[in-house]
Structures are given as C-alpha cells and as structure tokens.
Amino acid sequence: MNFLPSFRLGVLALSLLAGGSVAFARLDAKLVTIPAGVYTPLLRTTKDAAAVPVAAFLLDEKPVTNAEFLAFVTANPKWRRSQVSPLFADSSYLEHWAGDLEPGPKAPPGAPVVRVSWFAARAYARWLGQRLPTTAEWELAAAAGYTQPAGRTDEALQRDLYAWLARPVPAVLADATTARANYLGVRGLHGLVWEWVDDFNTAMVTGESRGDTGLERDLFCGAGTVGAKDPTDYAAFMRQALRSSLKANNTTTSLGFRCAKDLP
C-alpha cells in the first residue's frame, strides 16, 4: 500500500488582534492518503446501495487541535466564542476555553478541540481550502485496524475502542499525537473524541420519506437493528446514534473534527 503524506506546511495564519499585536500560528497538520475503498453502511434499506464506493482522498492524520483552532478564531473574529452567532454554535461553544483567544489549562494546545459546532468545523475546513470528510469517507478510514486492514477483527483495536466507550469524558483531553496510528497511518479515529462528518444529517434517514414517524422507528427501541449490516457492531450504532442526536449548532465535550481534501 502506498501512503503519500502531504503536508499543509507553512499555512500561515496572520491576524491583527484587537490590541494591535500580531499572532502567528503555523499549521503543520499532516494529511494521509486514504486509498479508494468500499463503505458498507451500518443501516440500509432496500433502496440503499449495499456497498458505497469511495474514491481515494486525503484525511488529517489527527483531529484538529486547540492550537490549530486558536489560529482559526484569531484570524476569523466571527468564530470567537464571544462573537459567534447562536445560529451557528450553541451557548457551550468552546466553553472550556479560558477566553476568546486563550484555550487555557482545560484545552492544552495539542489536544483535540471539542465543543465546536458543525458550522464552525466546516468554516475551519473551508478556511484551509479543505472540507469535512463524508460519513462514507470517515467510516472507510476508521474501518482499518492497528496492524491489519480490517479493524473489526483487530482485537487490540476493539479492546481499546470499547474501553474508551466505557470511560467518562476526561476533564482534560490527551494530546492528539498520543493516539495510536491505524493501518492507514491515521490517529485517533477511535478512542479520542467523536468527530463531525459533513453529512451528519443523513444519519437518521433510512429511505422512508413518507412521514417522520417512519424515521423514528429506525433509531429507537429495538427497531435499531432492522436492516443492520452487522447488529453486533455496537460502536457503529453509537456513532450513528450520536450523529443523529445532533443539530448543526450543537457542541459537546467529546465532539471534535478533522479535515479532508480531494486528491489533487
């Protein structure tokens, strides 16, 4: 397999702060090439494709960190905590940061940024000329194990994943680089934070467009397993449930994001 790490080195965020000082933040996030593959959706109706082909793409090696997001809000005042519109981020947006431009002790520079909305995550990606990964892309990259292409049969990965699910959200998140890289060289897809995907708002739709009660059935109470590809993949159900519980301006203590990009 051929990994082509490309770097968004030297992207320089330069901004004039209110006080007149100048802030520099160099963003050196590494993008990893995810080879083309096939995403098998967790829940599927007869109208849905059993396998969704996914073209090769670039994906952040690790989730976006507090330091990187600081550069973004420094350059884009409308995304600062005190200035963001409630339409785009709810009132707990970056609540754990010490100030508008000061992540502080609860948000170490190298830890994934959390309490960011879908709108904010998207704006960040757009600022770098990137985008959020789609559900299919994210799940394809996350399907890899540590040491083998299939994560579902990688016992070490499964153990870490369920151990993470079993623990409450820590008050201060670990550095993103501490997450073990998977077979494709991507870190922290499991076991660090949940992550936004661009099309998170497909999560609840299952093909019945004839009334919303038809949709509810697919998520709630037992019916959750109807048409499931693999009803034993509890972690996939949990990601699905989380995505479908969210509104685009929501933020939570364990929800961050990473960026993706089309191959040049």
Partner: peptide
C-alpha cells in the same frame, strides 16, 4: 410511540 423515546432523544449537554 416509543414511550417517549423519540421525543426525548437528547445530545450531551442538552
């Protein structure tokens, strides 16, 4: 329907 399940589906911090 759902005994309230659908009506109370709540994201963290909501």
């Amino acid at each position: 329907p759902g005994g309230g399940a659908a009506s109370t589906f709540t994201a963290p911090g909501h």
